[in-house]
Nucleic acid binder design. Structure first.
Lengths: 336, 336
DNA sequence: AGTTACTCTGCTCGAATGAGCAGCCATTTC
DNA sequence: GAAATGGCTGCTCATTCGAGCAGAGTAACT
């Protein structure tokens, strides 16, 4: 006689009930049977109302991160490039390099806080971003901290590599292994001479033991690498001809991430790309979309296997970087 | 200070992974086992990450209604007052009476669209809010529409009861039973005379058959009842002394919802409170918080058992109205 | 009016899930 | 040093959930 009156359409009554049920279920985390019993409905009806409500967009589930991380981009990058960790920091592109560096540094600091244990050996290259990272460091396991290359004697280099290593060592309480010497030296002889120095030798000897490295990835272009400025025009042209697209710790590499041998190499005091390659966890830091080719190459060549970058660079990487991992098993697009 | 490696705190890596998992689980609706298999984790770990994420507020579940309904208040009112249906329309208190009426009308219209079937008999009292309801009516079952009281001959009464009944009848296609007469008449003799008129008699005779009534609840105060103005000062003082707090269709009732007999009654052409009481579903419309005592009384007395109101009135009702044993929240007649 | 098609409802069964528990690893404390 | 402590991990079992199914009442169509 009487039809199902309360189930005609999705009118106000239905909405109110659906909202009530959704609240009980999602917010209060109660079970459907419980709700059904309470409201005098069958659990199936409750389930169906819940389904309808979700389909109608009545229930909105949002994933918000406390930190300014873009989770989708991060995951996409991680999968696409086959990275161990990927953290994309949401940063408006028009923001200054300085603020971007600081934001990246905060995130990288948290990342290594999370990652590094006492059993690790932390290695740091020289860069303003790495300096920002150590500045932002709040906690760190008491692990040895090794400087991976000499310091950059730039003008605004108030925070050089030595300071970074010191800072990390202070925060964590581990031993510091600094390198009191410039990264790029006048000639090979000076490099050899300094490499023989006792403290530096001790540090360099630890390079193979480094388990976690934090490195800045520079593009081999003006303004996108702190090293670019320090080598002469001769070195730049030589490197350009050899196909250099980026550098890590003044070690140049080409579009495939392979080392580019130039005369610069002999003048550099620091970790080599081969040594870098052997480090299990190398966290690359970079932030300008123009560095995409360099970062892409570094990832390709296995020089870095984790990445902290800004949104612009992350998006560019996702667009341009070649897939580095086989497609995942279940691409369940049309099946559901 | 050594902690478990990949699970120390809720750092960036954890956040990214948690966000990924939360997305897969909540947004894409995949199962935990599936996610666990894909990411190479145990399903327990996935569940724990999900729990932590929820506790951290990383996952935000919001219940949004398409219509401006306050679901919490509605549910609370429904339960508290033992109402069949309660719909609280979110409306800023400073909004004009007119816009509030229209909003209430829209919602009430949807409500009766949802509720009324061809087997019902719809009854309407006279009020601007009821007029707004029928104006907003889009669909309606082809049921008879009965005018429950005469029209109010106020100045701005462009939409009287007759028009409401016509409109509802037009939309639904059911038969209309209007009353072409004023609601409050000069004397009892006139009432008797009009009640004898053929068309009116036919309408009045249908009152006991009405199954769904839409009525406006007025407070027995100046400006809060359209009837207040139409009865003389004598009637007002008489009613006040008798304890009237509200009216429905010019029928006064006291704080307990009991009928208040005054000389006005004899001059009114329309449904009595006893008749109203017998109607299974009476939807009360009201919108000003100053009407709270009247609405509360009407609910207490069982004169209305569903309610459409605005936020201010709803909140006031929840604060002041005494708890009332919920009869049977929800379905009527649909007992399985 | 008869009949067909459909929607709504509640049930069954297998999969998914949550709570509690034991083992393990690492640190802390005596 | 060695035991105590605490957190993390994965397992078991009872509960809960979801997909599909059958019956009933309704709407539509002939």
């Amino acid at each position: 006689m009487v039809r199902g009156r309360d189930s005609e359409a999705h009118g106000p009554t239905w909405q109110v009930q659906a909202a009530l049920i959704a609240r009980r279920f999602y917010l209060e985390g109660r079970s459907k049977v419980e709700i059904a019993d309470e409201l005098g409905l069958s659990r199936f009806k409750v389930a169906r109302i819940l389904d309808d409500a979700r389909e109608l967009g009545l229930v909105e589930v949002r994933v918000n991160l406390p930190a300014p991380i873009d989770p989708d981009l991060s995951s996409a990058l991680q999968e696409r490039l086959g990275l161990r960790h990927a953290v994309v920091v949401q940063q408006p592109p028009q923001d200054s390099s300085r603020s971007t560096r600081e934001e990246l540094g905060r995130m990288a600091a948290e990342l290594i806080s999370e990652l590094v244990t006492v059993d690790d050996v932390l290695g740091l290259t020289c860069s303003r971003t790495v300096a920002a990272t150590t500045q932002a460091l709040q906690t760190l396991a008491a692990c040895p901290v090794v400087q991976l290359c000499g310091t950059l004697a730039g003008p605004d280099m108030e925070a050089g590599s030595v300071e970074s290593v010191r800072r990390a060592s202070d925060v964590g309480g581990g031993q510091a292994f600094p390198i009191y010497a410039p990264m790029v030296l006048p000639d090979a002889a000076t490099v050899r001479a300094l490499a023989g120095e006792s403290a530096i030798k001790q540090t360099v000897r630890l390079f193979p033991d480094v388990t976690v490295a934090v490195v800045a990835v520079g593009a081999w272009r003006s303004e996108l690498s702190t090293v670019w400025e320090t080598v002469g025009a001769l070195g730049r042209s030589q490197a350009g001809k050899a196909g250099a697209v980026g550098e890590i710790g003044a070690r140049l590499f080409d579009a495939h991430g392979k080392a580019v041998r130039t005369s610069i190499d002999d003048r550099v005091l620091g970790v080599t790309l081969d040594q870098l390659h052997a480090i299990p966890e190398v966290i690359g830091l970079a932030y300008d979309e123009r560095r995409a080719p360099a970062v892409s190459a570094a990832v390709q060549g296995g020089l870095v296997n984790s990445l902290v970058c800004d949104t612009a660079l992350g998006e560019r990487l996702l667009e341009t970087a070649p897939e580095r991992r086989p497609g995942r098993p279940g691409d369940r697009g049309a099946t559901a």
